[in-house]
Amino acid sequence: MRDMMCFDDIRPYEDQEVNHYINVLLNDDLFRQVLFFIFNDENKVKEVSAMLAGVNSIKELQLKFMYPLIEDWIIKRTTSGITYSGLENLDKSQSYLFISNHRDIILDSAILNYIVVNAGMNTTEVAIGNNLLIYDWIQHIVKLNRAFVVKRNLPVRELLTASKTLSQYIRKTVTKDNISVWIAQREGRTKDGCDQTQQALLKMLNLSNSGDFESGFRELKIVPLSISYEREPCGISKVEEIYKKERDGYVKTQADDLKSMAYGLTRPKGRVHFAFGKPIDAQLERIAQAENPQECIQRLADQIDACIYKNYKLWPYNYLAADMLSESGKHNGEISDGCKEKFYELLDDLVKTIGEGDAECQKRLFMKMYAAPLLNAERVCKEKIVY
């Protein structure tokens, strides 16, 4: 068992705790409602519950319950297939820190673990904000699936302490326990389609660095990960949130987060691609030559972003949205008539869902969300960002 005495309030559950917390879940009325929602059959729920009651390890839970669930209930029902690239650049015996763009609350990390398991690698531990642990059953299910907690919305002094602890936990997990970690490049999902690594994330990671900038980040073995959904999970809800924030000072609630989790799991996503970049290693020496620590952090963030933009799998909707915004036919070769019809239907659904306000403004926000990955990729290729 790993030495985690300092991390008990954020760490995932360990094997010896699994059976206890599974049985806590099985006695939780809300969790049982979730099982009925998924399987919609009382006998199937009884069968699954009996199987879960006998599970005694994280690996057993993931292989017997989580991965069949992800495959049958999410991938087969709500996507047109999952593809991935770049894993050949990674050593399956090594651990990495996957830093990725963030499009869906649950799916980003769930599909990542589905992919790495199928590729013969160990599952990663994943970061989840405590703002999403709305109910006890959510906390139990995520901690049973190798999630650790990121504490948010704390007073400044408490936040610094929590950030140091989180940084130490991530570094220990990757460098000493040889377990990979997934963390989003920013707090919260990208809602406007423009993925960007926050300096705060990299500063947090550097808090546990006992060496110099270069060696501290080198040992984390950062791998930029580009997550690309053909049809943006909760895309309409994201635009509705942006629009209402700009107009009415809309404030998101826990209920909105819960709704987003449900939408992401159940709504169509089209094709999905995960592109694993090469570990950021050789570039660190040059990045570390910046004039000051702040500039080093910004250069590393730019490097991660450039990798994510270059490797992002672009879909016809991305090209179509960019052409609609620029009123050009620059990318006509990438766009079919069927694609146009489906995208126009999404635009109509957007306006109907919001139900009021400036329809053209709402459509433009939607198009910007889809165009942003293409525009970022084109910009990076033009600027040739290399340190």
Rank of each mutant, 00 (worst) to 15 (best):
L30Q: 13
K151L: 14
F343G: 01
L314Y: 04
P293W: 03
D348T: 11
C339L: 02
L346M: 08
E47S: 12
V272K: 00
I304Y: 08
V142C: 15
N27I: 04
K384N: 14
F217Y: 11
L220S: 05
K330I: 09
L133A: 01
P224D: 10
I10H: 05
V126K: 09
L144N: 06
I74L: 10
C381V: 14
T175S: 01
S93N: 14
K310D: 15
I22A: 03
A119M: 11
R157Q: 15
T78M: 07
E295K: 08
L30T: 05
G357L: 00
A275L: 04
D177M: 03
D41L: 05
I222V: 04
L154S: 05
C234Q: 04
N130R: 03
I99S: 10
R11C: 09
V251W: 02
K164D: 08
K352L: 04
G355V: 00
I38T: 07
Q168K: 15
K340M: 13
E214V: 07
G277T: 03
S237A: 12
Y250Q: 09
I128E: 06
L284G: 02
H140C: 01
K342C: 10
T165M: 14
V150P: 09
S210F: 07
S163A: 15
M204Q: 02
Y114I: 06
L107E: 08
Y344T: 10
